[in-house]
Design a protein around this nucleic acid. Structure first.
Length: 498
RNA sequence: GGGUUGGUAGCUCAGUCGGUAGAGCAGUGCCCUUUUAAGGCAUUGGUCCUGGGUUCGAGUCCCAGCCAACCCA
């Protein structure tokens, strides 16, 4: 074979040579008898096993070769001896590449150094890998490639594999928890005629047959409430929302949201539900209620203690505590001055409650590291919630903050159709086409009083897994498209007939 | 949108004052039948992100752009 460093060409040559000898480099006839983890768990020395996986390392020793074979569950060393497999097969094994997927059959034994291994009697190439894997020791470091080609990240970084396994388990545990309490999981439209339930710019798409524009949902809320009207009393949905807004460390245009509604519940029952659910999930998946967030060098930045009960504080007292005891007697100008002092520049056109909320987000929220329910938010901030009976300038809602982020807002849901209509009409203003009339009609049929909560699943994962960026908990985060994608294979594509 | 940092071999990274482009791993060939980041010998491999500019000469300096990370908005 000619000397070249064109990995693709080299590997393609090997593939062609195999084909020329009548061998199929993409066979699908090999069935492993067990996973590597199962093999490790219940092995007996001398037993014969069939395992399959990707070659991740090899140590060639002349007439014998040690290789590492990895399947999803674990890694195992395989040992190939010239005398055991014969000269031709040994040559063929020597020319396998890192990244190739093989099946190996052989006897379980332990090496001199005590490593459990499989002494190969037969092997078969199951998939030829035409591209080299990332470096074996450092793994894949380039953060852009890690996001754009996540499969390489998963292939080479075990911590990333663990994180996404844990993500799956967290969602499973949430389902188990809610199902165990009589909640029913439902699916409501992602394509909506009116993008309601939140304030955000939606993605627009077009349905050809119906000849109408549809929006990708920004929230499932208004459909889940229709289900309460219909008589389902405890429902939840875990699914994607889409918001056509900026991308940041905490924002991906599509993100996973869970919303829970419980008839005859209220914001307090929702607080109790979360206070039980999140620790249960953390305990079952991570085995602890003390979540440690570490820095780049492994130093512990903070420990989040999920042990209930959690703090419950009103919006008013948190602000007074963080800014000034007499904060609530200040006039707007004094609040604006305070906002500017905090480095918030865009306060000029804002209403009083908006300025206050800017101050809240800057001076209070980032410091709410331990779980805190912020209650009694001003009604202007949350137009869809019920007024509080204790203080009619506030609403019966909470905002669960952990790790300096909003994790979950919860409400005593508004079920007065007259008031709801007024609020929604005020919200859409001139753009009356953005009014979800069918939802209002549903409310007019009567929605039972209910508690509701939305949990940002990605942010919950960041919290539980100690990730600093939302991209680290989403398998395929959104990035700008590259101008020229150089990862396309240099194969001969037939010219189109013109 | 603004600022900072980065982009060099397939991967992980060096590259000094502007003077012939470097290492480790991976690859290729040879030696090696219990290694495990195996070892030894030899060797291949570069659009230095892109486009301009300054200069006798640019990976390096300047300008513009692209992509990313972080910070700010």
């Amino acid at each position: 074979m000619e000397e070249t460093n064109d990995f693709f060409a080299l590997r393609k040559n090997k593939l062609d040579e195999l084909r020329a000898k009548g061998m199929d480099p993409f066979r699908n006839e090999f069935r492993p008898t067990r996973t590597v983890a199962q093999l490790r768990a219940v092995h007996e020395l001398g037993m014969t096993v069939k395992v399959a996986g990707r070659l991740t390392a090899h140590r060639r020793m002349g007439k014998s070769i040690f290789s590492d074979l990895r399947d999803e569950s674990d890694r195992i060393q395989i040992y190939v001896q010239k005398d055991a497999v014969g000269e031709d097969e040994f040559e063929r094994f020597k020319h396998l590449d890192l990244g190739d997927i093989i099946g190996a059959e052989g006897e379980v034994f332990t090496t001199k150094t005590g490593e459990l291994s499989v002494k190969v009697v037969k092997f078969v190439l199951l998939t030829k890998s035409l591209r080299p894997p990332p470096e074996k020791w450092h793994g894949l470091q380039d953060i852009e490639i890690r996001y754009r080609q996540r499969y390489l990240d998963l292939m080479s970084n075990s911590g990333v594999r663990d994180l996404f396994r844990n993500r799956s388990r967290v969602i499973q545990e949430i389902r188990a928890f809610l199902n165990g309490r009589g909640f029913m999981e439902v699916e409501t439209p992602m394509m909506q005629r009116v993008a309601g339930g939140a304030a955000a710019r939606p993605f627009v798409t077009h349905h050809e047959a119906l000849n109408c524009d549809l929006y990708l949902r920004i929230a499932p809320e208004l459909y889940l409430k229709r289900l309460l009207v219909g008589g389902f009393e405890k429902v939840y949905e875990i699914n994607r929302n889409f918001r056509n807004e900026g991308i940041s460390r905490r924002h991906n245009p599509e993100f996973t949201m869970m919303e829970i509604y419980e008839a005859y519940g209220n914001f307090r029952t929702m607080m109790e539900l979360l206070e039980e659910m999140i620790p249960t999930v953390a305990r079952n998946v991570f085995g602890t209620l003390d979540i440690k967030h570490t820095g780049l060098n492994g130093e512990i930045l903070r420990t989040i203690k999920l042990e209930p009960p959690w703090e419950r504080k009103t919006y008013r007292e948190l602000l007074a505590g963080a800014v000034a005891p007499d904060f609530w007697s200040w006039d707007v100008e004094k609040k604006r001055a305070k906002a500017r002092e905090l480095g918030i520049e865009t306060v000029d056109g804002l209403e009083d409650f908006e300025v206050v909320n800017q101050i809240f987000e800057k001076a209070v929220q980032p410091n709410l590291i331990q779980p805190t329910f912020v209650t009694h938010l001003p009604k202007e901030l949350v137009p869809l919630a019920k007024a509080s009976r204790e203080d009619s300038s506030t609403v019966d809602v909470f905002e669960l903050c952990i790790n300096g982020q909003e994790i979950a807002p919860g409400y005593s849901e508004q079920n007065d159709p007259i008031e709801q209509r007024e609020r929604l009409v005020a919200q859409v203003g001139q753009e009356i086409q953005n009014l979800d009339e069918d939802f209002l009609v549903a409310l007019e049929h009567g929605m039972p009083p209910a508690g509701g909560v939305g949990v940002g699943i990605d942010r919950l994962l960041m919290l539980l897994a100690g990730a600093e960026s939302i991209r680290d908990v989403i398998l395929f985060p959104q990035l700008k498209p590259q101008k020229e994608v150089e990862i396309l294979a240099p194969v001969n594509v037939p010219e189109p007939n013109l």
